[in-house]
Design a protein around this nucleic acid. Structure first.
Lengths: 126, 126
DNA sequence: ACGATCGTGTACTATGTCGTACACGATACA
DNA sequence: TGTATCGTGTACGACATAGTACACGATCGT
Protein backbone atom coordinates (compact mmCIF):
# COMPACT_ATOMS: atom_id res chain seq x y z
CA UNK A 1 0.00 0.00 0.00
CA UNK A 2 1.31 3.41 -0.93
CA UNK A 3 1.43 5.82 1.97
CA UNK A 4 0.71 9.55 1.73
CA UNK A 5 4.45 10.24 1.59
CA UNK A 6 4.27 9.44 -2.10
CA UNK A 7 1.80 12.15 -2.99
CA UNK A 8 3.05 15.13 -4.90
CA UNK A 9 4.02 18.22 -3.00
CA UNK A 10 1.05 20.41 -3.77
CA UNK A 11 2.68 23.29 -1.92
CA UNK A 12 5.90 23.51 -3.91
CA UNK A 13 4.10 23.08 -7.23
CA UNK A 14 1.62 25.80 -6.37
CA UNK A 15 4.25 28.14 -5.00
CA UNK A 16 6.33 27.76 -8.13
CA UNK A 17 3.39 28.44 -10.43
CA UNK A 18 2.37 31.46 -8.41
CA UNK A 19 5.88 32.84 -8.45
CA UNK A 20 6.19 32.37 -12.22
CA UNK A 21 2.78 33.84 -12.93
CA UNK A 22 3.45 36.86 -10.73
CA UNK A 23 6.76 37.40 -12.51
CA UNK A 24 4.96 37.45 -15.85
CA UNK A 25 2.35 39.72 -14.39
CA UNK A 26 4.90 42.37 -13.50
CA UNK A 27 5.46 42.88 -17.23
CA UNK A 28 1.97 42.03 -18.48
CA UNK A 29 -1.16 42.80 -16.45
CA UNK A 30 -3.08 40.10 -18.27
CA UNK A 31 -1.41 37.40 -16.17
CA UNK A 32 -3.98 37.59 -13.39
CA UNK A 33 -5.36 34.42 -11.84
CA UNK A 34 -8.62 35.03 -13.67
CA UNK A 35 -7.18 35.60 -17.10
CA UNK A 36 -4.65 32.80 -16.94
CA UNK A 37 -7.40 30.46 -15.75
CA UNK A 38 -9.51 31.59 -18.70
CA UNK A 39 -6.67 30.74 -21.10
CA UNK A 40 -6.35 27.33 -19.51
CA UNK A 41 -10.07 26.75 -19.62
CA UNK A 42 -10.43 26.27 -15.86
CA UNK A 43 -12.17 28.15 -13.08
CA UNK A 44 -10.24 31.01 -11.42
CA UNK A 45 -11.07 29.72 -7.97
CA UNK A 46 -9.53 26.38 -8.89
CA UNK A 47 -6.29 27.93 -10.11
CA UNK A 48 -6.21 30.02 -6.94
CA UNK A 49 -6.47 26.92 -4.81
CA UNK A 50 -3.84 25.14 -6.88
CA UNK A 51 -1.38 28.00 -6.43
CA UNK A 52 -1.89 28.01 -2.68
CA UNK A 53 -1.51 24.24 -2.46
CA UNK A 54 -5.01 23.90 -1.15
CA UNK A 55 -5.68 21.16 -3.71
CA UNK A 56 -3.30 18.77 -5.45
CA UNK A 57 -1.74 19.75 -8.80
CA UNK A 58 -4.09 19.53 -11.80
CA UNK A 59 -4.22 16.82 -14.45
CA UNK A 60 -1.38 16.26 -16.89
CA UNK A 61 -3.20 18.11 -19.69
CA UNK A 62 -3.81 21.14 -17.53
CA UNK A 63 -0.23 21.22 -16.28
CA UNK A 64 1.05 21.09 -19.87
CA UNK A 65 -1.22 23.97 -20.92
CA UNK A 66 -0.07 25.88 -17.84
CA UNK A 67 3.54 25.37 -18.87
CA UNK A 68 2.75 26.75 -22.33
CA UNK A 69 0.97 29.79 -20.95
CA UNK A 70 3.78 30.53 -18.51
CA UNK A 71 6.59 29.71 -20.93
CA UNK A 72 7.93 27.00 -18.66
CA UNK A 73 9.35 23.57 -19.43
CA UNK A 74 6.48 21.08 -19.40
CA UNK A 75 8.59 18.18 -18.10
CA UNK A 76 9.83 20.25 -15.20
CA UNK A 77 6.38 21.48 -14.27
CA UNK A 78 5.01 17.95 -14.54
CA UNK A 79 7.82 16.75 -12.28
CA UNK A 80 6.88 19.36 -9.68
CA UNK A 81 3.33 18.08 -10.01
CA UNK A 82 4.62 14.59 -9.23
CA UNK A 83 3.86 13.37 -12.73
CA UNK A 84 5.69 12.07 -15.79
CA UNK A 85 4.60 12.92 -19.31
CA UNK A 86 2.50 10.21 -20.95
CA UNK A 87 4.68 10.14 -24.05
CA UNK A 88 7.74 9.30 -21.92
CA UNK A 89 5.82 6.56 -20.16
CA UNK A 90 4.81 5.22 -23.56
CA UNK A 91 8.43 4.89 -24.59
CA UNK A 92 9.13 2.78 -21.51
CA UNK A 93 5.94 0.77 -21.90
CA UNK A 94 6.83 -0.27 -25.42
CA UNK A 95 10.21 -1.71 -24.46
CA UNK A 96 10.05 -2.16 -20.70
CA UNK A 97 13.02 -4.43 -20.20
CA UNK A 98 15.32 -2.26 -22.23
CA UNK A 99 14.33 1.07 -20.76
CA UNK A 100 13.79 -0.12 -17.21
CA UNK A 101 17.34 -1.47 -17.17
CA UNK A 102 18.81 1.64 -18.70
CA UNK A 103 17.06 4.06 -16.36
CA UNK A 104 17.95 2.05 -13.26
CA UNK A 105 21.52 1.92 -14.47
CA UNK A 106 21.59 5.70 -14.76
CA UNK A 107 19.69 6.42 -11.57
CA UNK A 108 22.68 7.19 -9.43
CA UNK A 109 25.02 8.64 -12.00
CA UNK A 110 25.84 12.34 -11.78
CA UNK A 111 24.17 14.79 -14.16
CA UNK A 112 27.32 15.19 -16.20
CA UNK A 113 27.52 11.49 -17.02
CA UNK A 114 23.91 11.37 -18.20
CA UNK A 115 24.41 14.56 -20.15
CA UNK A 116 27.45 13.09 -21.84
CA UNK A 117 25.32 10.13 -22.87
CA UNK A 118 22.62 12.35 -24.33
CA UNK A 119 25.18 14.20 -26.42
CA UNK A 120 26.86 11.01 -27.49
CA UNK A 121 23.59 9.62 -28.79
CA UNK A 122 22.60 12.87 -30.43
CA UNK A 123 25.88 13.38 -32.24
CA UNK A 124 26.98 9.85 -33.01
CA UNK A 125 25.47 7.71 -35.78
CA UNK A 126 23.46 5.22 -33.78
CA UNK B 1 -23.30 -0.49 -12.33
CA UNK B 2 -19.92 -1.24 -13.77
CA UNK B 3 -19.08 1.11 -16.60
CA UNK B 4 -17.42 0.41 -19.94
CA UNK B 5 -14.19 -0.89 -18.47
CA UNK B 6 -13.16 -2.33 -21.82
CA UNK B 7 -9.69 -1.50 -23.03
CA UNK B 8 -7.43 -3.45 -25.34
CA UNK B 9 -5.04 -3.37 -22.41
CA UNK B 10 -7.32 -5.29 -20.10
CA UNK B 11 -7.71 -8.08 -22.62
CA UNK B 12 -4.05 -8.65 -23.48
CA UNK B 13 -2.92 -8.25 -19.89
CA UNK B 14 -5.52 -10.69 -18.65
CA UNK B 15 -4.86 -13.21 -21.40
CA UNK B 16 -1.15 -13.14 -20.68
CA UNK B 17 -1.65 -13.63 -16.95
CA UNK B 18 -4.05 -16.48 -17.52
CA UNK B 19 -1.68 -18.19 -19.92
CA UNK B 20 1.24 -17.87 -17.51
CA UNK B 21 -0.76 -19.04 -14.54
CA UNK B 22 -2.12 -22.06 -16.45
CA UNK B 23 1.41 -22.93 -17.52
CA UNK B 24 2.50 -22.93 -13.89
CA UNK B 25 -0.55 -24.90 -12.98
CA UNK B 26 0.39 -27.76 -15.29
CA UNK B 27 3.37 -28.44 -13.03
CA UNK B 28 1.90 -27.32 -9.72
CA UNK B 29 -1.78 -27.73 -8.92
CA UNK B 30 -1.62 -24.93 -6.37
CA UNK B 31 -1.71 -22.31 -9.13
CA UNK B 32 -5.47 -22.16 -9.25
CA UNK B 33 -7.28 -18.84 -9.50
CA UNK B 34 -8.31 -19.20 -5.89
CA UNK B 35 -4.91 -20.02 -4.45
CA UNK B 36 -3.04 -17.46 -6.48
CA UNK B 37 -5.59 -14.84 -5.45
CA UNK B 38 -5.07 -15.88 -1.84
CA UNK B 39 -1.30 -15.38 -2.20
CA UNK B 40 -1.92 -11.94 -3.69
CA UNK B 41 -4.38 -11.03 -0.99
CA UNK B 42 -7.25 -10.40 -3.39
CA UNK B 43 -10.60 -12.03 -4.05
CA UNK B 44 -10.69 -14.99 -6.46
CA UNK B 45 -13.60 -13.52 -8.38
CA UNK B 46 -11.58 -10.36 -8.95
CA UNK B 47 -8.58 -12.24 -10.33
CA UNK B 48 -10.95 -14.22 -12.53
CA UNK B 49 -12.39 -11.02 -13.97
CA UNK B 50 -8.92 -9.55 -14.46
CA UNK B 51 -7.77 -12.62 -16.39
CA UNK B 52 -10.77 -12.45 -18.68
CA UNK B 53 -10.33 -8.72 -19.26
CA UNK B 54 -13.67 -8.00 -17.71
CA UNK B 55 -12.10 -5.31 -15.55
CA UNK B 56 -8.98 -3.20 -16.10
CA UNK B 57 -5.62 -4.44 -14.80
CA UNK B 58 -5.11 -4.10 -11.03
CA UNK B 59 -3.07 -1.49 -9.18
CA UNK B 60 0.69 -1.29 -9.50
CA UNK B 61 1.22 -3.05 -6.17
CA UNK B 62 -1.00 -5.94 -7.12
CA UNK B 63 0.60 -6.31 -10.54
CA UNK B 64 4.03 -6.44 -8.92
CA UNK B 65 2.95 -9.12 -6.46
CA UNK B 66 1.41 -11.03 -9.36
CA UNK B 67 4.72 -10.88 -11.21
CA UNK B 68 6.49 -12.29 -8.15
CA UNK B 69 4.01 -15.12 -7.74
CA UNK B 70 4.17 -16.04 -11.42
CA UNK B 71 7.92 -15.56 -11.72
CA UNK B 72 7.48 -12.92 -14.40
CA UNK B 73 9.33 -9.66 -15.01
CA UNK B 74 7.52 -6.92 -13.09
CA UNK B 75 8.35 -4.19 -15.60
CA UNK B 76 6.98 -6.27 -18.47
CA UNK B 77 3.79 -7.12 -16.61
CA UNK B 78 3.35 -3.49 -15.62
CA UNK B 79 3.82 -2.48 -19.24
CA UNK B 80 1.09 -4.89 -20.30
CA UNK B 81 -1.06 -3.30 -17.62
CA UNK B 82 -0.39 0.10 -19.23
CA UNK B 83 1.68 1.24 -16.27
CA UNK B 84 5.25 2.24 -15.46
CA UNK B 85 6.89 1.37 -12.16
CA UNK B 86 6.82 4.19 -9.63
CA UNK B 87 10.54 3.93 -8.96
CA UNK B 88 11.28 4.56 -12.66
CA UNK B 89 8.96 7.54 -12.68
CA UNK B 90 10.78 8.82 -9.60
CA UNK B 91 14.09 8.77 -11.44
CA UNK B 92 12.62 10.92 -14.19
CA UNK B 93 10.85 13.22 -11.74
CA UNK B 94 14.07 14.00 -9.93
CA UNK B 95 15.90 15.13 -13.05
CA UNK B 96 13.18 15.76 -15.62
CA UNK B 97 15.15 17.78 -18.14
CA UNK B 98 17.98 15.28 -18.25
CA UNK B 99 15.91 12.12 -18.47
CA UNK B 100 13.16 13.53 -20.67
CA UNK B 101 15.77 14.52 -23.23
CA UNK B 102 17.57 11.21 -23.06
CA UNK B 103 14.46 9.08 -23.38
CA UNK B 104 13.10 11.11 -26.29
CA UNK B 105 16.50 10.81 -27.95
CA UNK B 106 16.36 7.04 -27.63
CA UNK B 107 12.71 6.63 -28.53
CA UNK B 108 13.25 5.65 -32.15
CA UNK B 109 16.56 3.87 -31.88
CA UNK B 110 16.59 0.12 -32.45
CA UNK B 111 16.83 -2.25 -29.49
CA UNK B 112 20.41 -3.08 -30.27
CA UNK B 113 21.52 0.53 -29.97
CA UNK B 114 19.82 0.99 -26.60
CA UNK B 115 21.19 -2.32 -25.41
CA UNK B 116 24.69 -1.27 -26.41
CA UNK B 117 24.23 1.86 -24.31
CA UNK B 118 23.09 -0.13 -21.28
CA UNK B 119 26.15 -2.35 -21.51
CA UNK B 120 28.43 0.58 -22.06
CA UNK B 121 27.20 2.26 -18.90
CA UNK B 122 27.27 -0.95 -16.91
CA UNK B 123 30.77 -1.94 -17.89
CA UNK B 124 32.50 1.39 -18.29
CA UNK B 125 33.64 3.53 -15.41
CA UNK B 126 31.07 6.26 -15.43
C1' DA C 1 -20.84 -40.96 -3.60
C1' DC C 2 -19.76 -36.89 -1.65
C1' DG C 3 -17.15 -33.26 0.40
C1' DA C 4 -13.52 -30.12 -0.93
C1' DT C 5 -12.13 -27.19 -4.26
C1' DC C 6 -12.93 -24.89 -8.49
C1' DG C 7 -14.17 -20.72 -11.63
C1' DT C 8 -17.37 -17.15 -12.14
C1' DG C 9 -21.87 -14.09 -11.93
C1' DT C 10 -24.10 -10.32 -9.49
C1' DA C 11 -24.22 -6.66 -6.41
C1' DC C 12 -22.12 -3.20 -3.94
C1' DT C 13 -18.67 0.37 -2.10
C1' DA C 14 -14.79 3.31 -0.42
C1' DT C 15 -11.56 6.52 -1.95
C1' DG C 16 -9.31 9.42 -5.29
C1' DT C 17 -9.16 12.59 -9.23
C1' DC C 18 -10.37 16.71 -11.26
C1' DG C 19 -12.65 19.76 -11.44
C1' DT C 20 -17.50 23.45 -11.66
C1' DA C 21 -20.75 27.00 -9.80
C1' DC C 22 -21.55 30.94 -7.47
C1' DA C 23 -21.07 34.47 -4.16
C1' DC C 24 -18.44 37.70 -1.52
C1' DG C 25 -15.67 41.61 -0.13
C1' DA C 26 -11.32 43.99 -1.63
C1' DT C 27 -8.82 46.67 -5.07
C1' DA C 28 -7.81 49.37 -9.18
C1' DC C 29 -8.57 52.99 -12.18
C1' DA C 30 -10.89 56.37 -15.34
C1' DT D 1 -17.30 57.68 -7.19
C1' DG D 2 -18.77 53.97 -9.38
C1' DT D 3 -17.91 49.90 -11.98
C1' DA D 4 -14.81 46.54 -13.74
C1' DT D 5 -11.74 43.36 -12.29
C1' DC D 6 -9.52 40.97 -8.71
C1' DG D 7 -8.53 36.82 -5.47
C1' DT D 8 -10.72 33.51 -2.74
C1' DG D 9 -14.34 30.85 0.35
C1' DT D 10 -17.94 27.34 0.37
C1' DA D 11 -20.50 23.78 -1.59
C1' DC D 12 -21.07 20.29 -4.68
C1' DG D 13 -20.51 16.63 -8.43
C1' DA D 14 -19.17 13.36 -12.23
C1' DC D 15 -16.34 9.78 -13.24
C1' DA D 16 -12.36 6.61 -12.44
C1' DT D 17 -9.91 3.28 -9.60
C1' DA D 18 -9.51 -0.76 -7.13
C1' DG D 19 -11.32 -3.56 -5.26
C1' DT D 20 -14.96 -6.77 -1.51
C1' DA D 21 -18.75 -10.04 -0.36
C1' DC D 22 -21.28 -13.86 -1.25
C1' DA D 23 -23.64 -17.31 -3.72
C1' DC D 24 -23.98 -20.70 -7.34
C1' DG D 25 -23.32 -24.78 -10.08
C1' DA D 26 -19.39 -27.53 -11.99
C1' DT D 27 -15.64 -30.70 -11.19
C1' DC D 28 -11.99 -33.35 -8.86
C1' DG D 29 -10.10 -36.63 -5.73
C1' DT D 30 -10.72 -40.44 -2.60
Amino acid sequence: MNGPARTADATSFGAYVRERREARRAADRSYSVRQVAARLGIEPSYLSKVERGQVPPPSEDTVVRLAEVLGEDADVLLALAGKVSTDLKDVIRRRPRLFADLIRELRDLPDRAVLRLVREVRDGDW
